[in-house]
Computed example of a mutant assay.
Amino acid sequence: MRLIASDIDGTILGHDGKISPRTIRAFRAAEDAGVEIVFVTGRPPRWLDPLREQIGHTGTVICSNGAVVYDLVSERVTSSHLLPLASILRAREIIKDLVPDAAFAVETLEGFQLEPGFLEPGTVDLLAKVTPAPLRETVTAKSEVVKFLAVTRDSTADAFLARVRPSVDRLLAVTHSAAATAMLEMGPHGINKAVTLAEYAASRGIEARDVVAFGDMPNDIEMLRWAGAGYAMASGHERARAATALHAPDFSDDGVAQVLEARLAGLAKA
């Protein structure tokens, strides 16, 4: 084990925004043992405070499902893969025809743009400060979009994905990671967590067989399959669990910490 690659939400971070003390200790013990750590998430760079404040991570984070690589030390984007505006607008038209109540948003390197209806009424979070407006009015070819999102209130994430993917897949890669919201995340074809993680590992001279990865949702599947030891959370999505023979205990049982503790004990005996 030379590199640990971990998803964040639902894997080490709960809905309360907390990482358990046991999990924090496990990551710090791995770092002390000389194991490199990289977090691989669907989150944008500006939502990485839990890593800084709770774990004290100061390394690299692969964000936006692989579309962005961010350095927490310099607080800058080191690489990115952008979406063509034409593909975004065409995908929006297709999805709107298929699911009329769908609402849309884009994640850019500078921030977030969303349309009316994307947020549920009464939502109070960081996005509530963004003024909704049609994407045709707010997004241009210079907007540096790294993720396109669509949400519906009248479906599940899996059903929404099944309805939309056949028609949109030629334009954008489609996945989802929200456990309780029917929200789709679309990015550049050929880019996902596994692709960017593989590039990062290669730059460190680390092979897939020396990578231990953790994830819980469909957007983690490629990463779990690529890593030498890819652990799906027992509390995760059924498709993530089916993607790998290795399962970490439930998130609520500090599953990632349990696996890391056992692997670090094995390293100590070697």
Results as ranks from 00 to 15, higher is better:
S64M: 11
T78Q: 12
A33Y: 03
L48Q: 09
A213M: 13
H57L: 07
E207V: 12
V130R: 14
D49K: 13
V146K: 03
S74I: 04
C63A: 13
A26Y: 06
L85C: 00
G17V: 04
P100T: 09
A201Q: 04
R136H: 03
E93V: 01
S6Y: 03
D101A: 08
R209L: 02
P44H: 03
G266F: 00
S79M: 04
I62G: 03
G215V: 09
F39Q: 12
V139E: 01
R92K: 15
K96D: 05
S87W: 00
F112P: 04
D158H: 03
R204Q: 06
I94V: 15
P45K: 06
I62L: 11
T156G: 12
A248Y: 08
G34A: 07
E222G: 05
L126N: 06
A270G: 15
A159P: 00
R163T: 14
K193V: 11
V130H: 07
A150D: 11
A30C: 06
E137W: 01
E107H: 14
I206E: 07
I12R: 10
N65L: 07
G56I: 08
A5V: 02
R52W: 00
A234M: 10
G230K: 11
K129F: 06
L149S: 09
L171E: 10
G266K: 14
T23Q: 08
F112H: 15
A182C: 07
Q54S: 02
A103F: 07
I191Y: 03
A159R: 14
A268W: 01
E137A: 13
I55D: 01
A240R: 08
L264H: 11
N219F: 02
A29V: 02
K147D: 04
M186Y: 05
I19E: 02
A208N: 04
L149C: 12
H189C: 03
T60N: 05
C63K: 14
A33S: 14
L126G: 10
L267D: 01
D216P: 09
A30K: 11
P50L: 06
S74E: 11
L246G: 13
G56D: 08
A33G: 08
G111E: 02
S74Q: 13
L197H: 05
M1C: 12
A268P: 01
P45N: 03
V35R: 10
A162R: 15
G236E: 05
G228A: 09
A30T: 03
I19W: 00
V139R: 04
L135Q: 06
